[in-house]
Amino acid sequence: RDEMEEWSASEASLFEEALEKYGKDFNDIRQDFLPWKSLTSIIEYYYMWKTTD
């Protein structure tokens, strides 16, 4: 399955904003920016995001 497909463009930009603010503190990212996403989903997205450019 492709996690990228499940993320909207606005969620992707929220994620990048959160990453700038918190770094890899995924709990804070989830709490402040993406509370409707699971922690697992955020972490999986991060690793996919990191490996695609």
Rank of each mutant, 00 (worst) to 15 (best):
R1S: 10
R1L: 11
R1V: 14
R1D: 08
D2A: 13
D2R: 09
D2F: 11
E3I: 12
E3V: 11
E3Q: 08
E3G: 07
E3L: 13
M4S: 09
M4H: 14
M4N: 12
M4R: 12
M4F: 05
M4I: 10
E5S: 11
E5H: 05
E5C: 09
E5K: 12
E5T: 04
E6D: 08
E6R: 10
E6Y: 09
E6P: 08
E6G: 09
E6L: 03
E6M: 13
E6N: 11
W7C: 00
W7R: 04
W7S: 03
W7F: 04
S8T: 12
S8N: 11
S8C: 01
A9P: 09
A9I: 09
A9L: 07
S10R: 11
S10E: 12
S10M: 11
S10K: 14
S10D: 11
S10V: 10
S10Q: 10
S10I: 07
E11M: 13
A12S: 08
A12I: 11
A12C: 09
A12Q: 14
A12V: 13
S13Q: 13
S13W: 04
S13Y: 05
S13C: 11
S13P: 04
L14T: 02
L14K: 11
L14N: 05
L14V: 04
L14E: 00
L14Q: 04
L14R: 05
L14G: 01
L14Y: 08
F15R: 07
F15T: 02
F15G: 03
F15Q: 10
E16L: 06
E16F: 08
E16D: 06
E16I: 04
E17W: 03
E17G: 03
E17Y: 08
A18W: 02
A18S: 00
A18L: 05
A18M: 05
A18I: 00
A18H: 01
A18R: 01
A18Q: 06
A18F: 01
L19T: 06
L19V: 13
L19M: 10
L19C: 00
L19Q: 09
E20L: 11
E20W: 05
E20A: 12
E20V: 10
K21E: 01
K21S: 03
K21W: 02
K21I: 08
K21P: 02
K21A: 03
K21Q: 04
Y22G: 05
Y22A: 04
Y22H: 12
Y22E: 02
Y22R: 10
Y22F: 00
G23K: 00
G23S: 03
G23N: 05
G23I: 00
G23A: 06
K24M: 08
K24I: 06
K24A: 13
K24P: 14
K24C: 14
K24L: 12
D25I: 11
D25V: 02
D25Y: 08
D25W: 03
D25M: 10
D25C: 12
D25S: 15
F26S: 00
N27K: 06
N27F: 12
N27A: 12
N27W: 05
D28H: 06
D28G: 13
D28M: 14
I29H: 04
I29V: 08
L34S: 10
L34Q: 09
W36I: 01
W36E: 01
W36Y: 05
W36H: 10
W36D: 05
W36S: 05
K37N: 02
K37L: 02
K37V: 02
S38C: 00
S38F: 02
L39Q: 02
T40L: 02
T40Y: 06
T40G: 10
S41D: 13
S41W: 01
S41Y: 07
S41I: 00
I42N: 13
I42T: 05
I42A: 00
I42F: 05
I42S: 04
I42K: 01
I42R: 04
I43W: 06
I43E: 15
I43D: 00
E44N: 14
E44S: 12
E44W: 00
Y45D: 07
Y45G: 00
Y45R: 11
Y45T: 08
Y46S: 07
Y46N: 01
Y46Q: 03
Y46C: 00
Y46F: 03
Y46K: 03
Y46G: 08
Y47M: 09
Y47N: 13
Y47P: 11
Y47S: 14
Y47H: 14
Y47L: 03
Y47K: 15
M48L: 10
M48S: 12
M48G: 10
M48D: 05
W49D: 06
W49I: 12
K50H: 11
K50A: 08
K50Q: 11
K50N: 12
K50S: 10
K50R: 09
T51A: 14
T51S: 12
T51R: 11
T51C: 10
T51F: 03
T52P: 12
T52C: 14
T52V: 11
T52N: 14
D53T: 08
D53R: 11
D53H: 14
D53N: 14
D53G: 13
